[in-house]
Amino acid sequence: METSDIHILVVDDEAVVNINLSGYLEDEGFTVFSAASAEEALELIDQQRIDVGIIDMRLPGMDGNALILKAYHKQRAMKFLIHTGSTNYSLPQSLIELGLGEAQVLRKPVSDLSILPRMIYEMFSMDDNK
């Protein structure tokens, strides 16, 4: 699987965060889609195959948790990374049931973005040097 075959959806209402995160992953060679809200993201998921969703929890309208649950029902193979600025965020039971754990939670600010591709490759058990 080529890196460009991995479709990543970045959902963050903060434009700067969204652009930088998407930019970094594009630079890494991933195919990146971005959405500023859960609703926008769900539209994209309906149209595109998405392999990994990097999702901010606090979003206008529908929040990140609900988005993940909905997205999962749309594409069962989809994987998620939670990107949150909240200091006291803890995984809700519904997400743990989907197989998410503490390892899939990224806390803002992420001071070293290089961990992102590593985490993605890990999900697909790929060598990042490919």
Partner: peptide, 21 residues
Amino acid sequence: AHEINNPLGGILMAAQNIERR
């Protein structure tokens, strides 16, 4: 922390991207 961490995340990401690009 939440309010600061978001912009701080943006700053740090942007800086990393600039450094890389």
